[in-house]
Design a protein around this nucleic acid. Structure first.
Lengths: 164, 164
DNA sequence: TTCCTATATAGGATTGTATCGCAATAAGGG
DNA sequence: CCCTTATTGCGATACAATCCTATATAGGAA
């Protein structure tokens, strides 16, 4: 809900984190964080690059990568390892993901699906647990209907070898 | 437990899957599946390549990649997206993973940690759920003690930008 | 066993993601 | 308005993964 203030809050948090470390708020960084905060589809670095370039035509890919690295290291954004390119999630709160095995789309599931403290207090080889999430995979609506009708559709991700 | 028969069972399942599709059992494929079935650390393609090359000196990286793709597409092995290179898990049964955020090591947690994840029967945008896992992140024992004593240790994975 | 053909392999070329190195640029405190 | 220092742009580079194709081989048929 209320996306406007949400985006602005993220902007503010980023500006604050930068200042706290003696880093500078450039307009490149500002546009990257804005684009990501407003995104609803867990974009990858290149999607952000293309989107931001509309407003900052001279921005380089590397600046986008560096900005994302800064955000992730500050805990303001989460990096999601995915086939192909890593995706980024501006929502750092505890929530779960559904991943379509066909097109790679990620859908937020909210925290409802996650049950509390199912973890034993001690896990072998594990010193400290800081993060627990439920991951769900399957077919998204789009791919399901595309599959039932005809062609595999223009898969936008998950471009890996098919296996002879 | 009983790793020997476990490995042999996986070999047999692979041979069977190949035959069912008119594919051939080459000794390159055999050594790859053996190496992976015996592995306990969720290796990536290159680790398998290096290990298998000990016994099949002329094997190419591509053959390892192709064999893995074949295994994955047959549902005999699971691909785990990870920073750097993808890792592969010969254990396809429902079990959960702990991932060390420092070194990238993956530790099996068994199914015990997974409680009744009461997923709503209907999820928005989701057509079909075929896979549910719990993912846990934190610090492994090794990294925890290495961190408390001194240097960051020779991180063997998770080599991503630090973020200024 | 030998032959034959479709499948598989080797490995160099290629694509794609992400990072590095450095000269040029600009943020922002003084 | 200056000056120091962080930041940017971009070509070079590193590495994962896949493609291309001439050559090799699995494995059924004779």
């Amino acid at each position: 809900m209320d996306h406007m203030s949400d985006t602005q809050e993220r902007e503010r948090a980023f500006a604050e984190a930068l200042k706290a470390d003696g880093l500078r708020m450039t307009h490149q960084r500002l546009e990257v964080i804005r684009e990501l905060a407003a995104a609803r589809h867990h974009p990858d670095a290149d999607e952000l690059f293309v989107a931001v370039r509309e407003r900052v035509p001279t921005i380089s890919r590397d600046t986008v990568y560096r900005t994302l690295a800064t955000l992730v290291s500050r805990g303001l954004v989460e990096r999601i390892a995915a086939p192909g390119a890593a995706r980024f999630d501006p929502d750092v709160s505890a929530h779960n993901h559904f991943v379509c095995t066909r097109c790679g789309t990620i859908i937020d599931l909210g925290t409802g699906a996650l049950v509390e403290h199912a973890l034993p207090s001690r896990l072998d080889g594990v010193a400290e647990v800081t993060w627990v999430r439920l991951e769900v995979k399957g077919l998204c609506m789009q791919c399901a209907s595309a599959a039932s009708t005809a062609r595999p559709s223009t898969a936008d991700a998950a471009t890996q070898r098919e296996g002879s």
